[in-house]
Amino acid sequence: MMLKKLFLLLLVIVHFSENSLADDRKAYQVGDTIMEFKLKNIDGKFKALNDYKSEKGIILIFTCNHCPFSVAYEDRIIALHKKYSGLGFPVVAINPNDDKAYPLDSYENMIERAQEKGFTFDYLHDETQEVAKTFGATNTPHVFIVSNQQSHFKVEYIGAIDDNSYEPQSVKHRHVENAVDQLVKKIPITVTKTKALGCSIKWKK
C-alpha cells in the first residue's frame, strides 16, 4: 500500500517535470519593440542599439563560428550586408554561445573568423547571453529583422535566411531578402515567420 502511494507520488512528480520540459521562455514576436542592448564588437568597441538610429532597420542574426549551419550561411550573410547596408538595413551578427562549451565561439576566435572571411558587418559578442535570451533566440543562425520606428525598433520578421541551408544554388525562397525588399518598398511583409534547423544555443550553466 505504502509502495503504491509512493509510486503514484513519483508519477505525479515526473508528470510535472515533463510539463516543464516544454520551455515557455518568453520570446519576441513579430510586432514587438526590442530592448536596448550594448555589446562588444570585434573591433573592441561597444555597440548599442542606439548606434543604429540612422538606419532604416537592422538584419540581426544570432550566429556563431562552430555551427556547420552558421558556416554554411557565412557567404550568404556577407552578401546580405553587401546588398542591404546601402539601403539602410545593415547586418548585425551576434554570437551568444558559451565559449566554455564551444571554444571556437570565443571572442578571440570571432575576431579571427571575421578576418579570415572578411566580415564587413558588426559581429557582436553576447557574453552574458542576456540579449539572446531576451530575443528568444534558440538556434544558430536565427534571424530577427527589425525596423526603425524612430522612438524604437520593431520586430518585422523572425526565422530562417532562406529555405535551403545545404545548397545555396537550390534555394527557392529567400525569406530575409523578400522581407527586407518589402520593408524597403514599404509594403506588408508576406512571410513574417519561418523555421530552420540549426545548432541549439549553448546556455551557460
Partner: peptide
C-alpha cells in the same frame, strides 16, 4: 532541406534547434 515545411509537423513548439 526546407525544414520550415516539416518542423511544425513534428511539434509546433520546436524552434528547429538540434537535438
Amino acid at each position: 532541406p526546407d525544414a520550415n515545411r516539416w518542423i511544425n509537423l513534428v511539434d509546433s513548439s520546436w524552434s528547429g534547434a538540434l537535438p
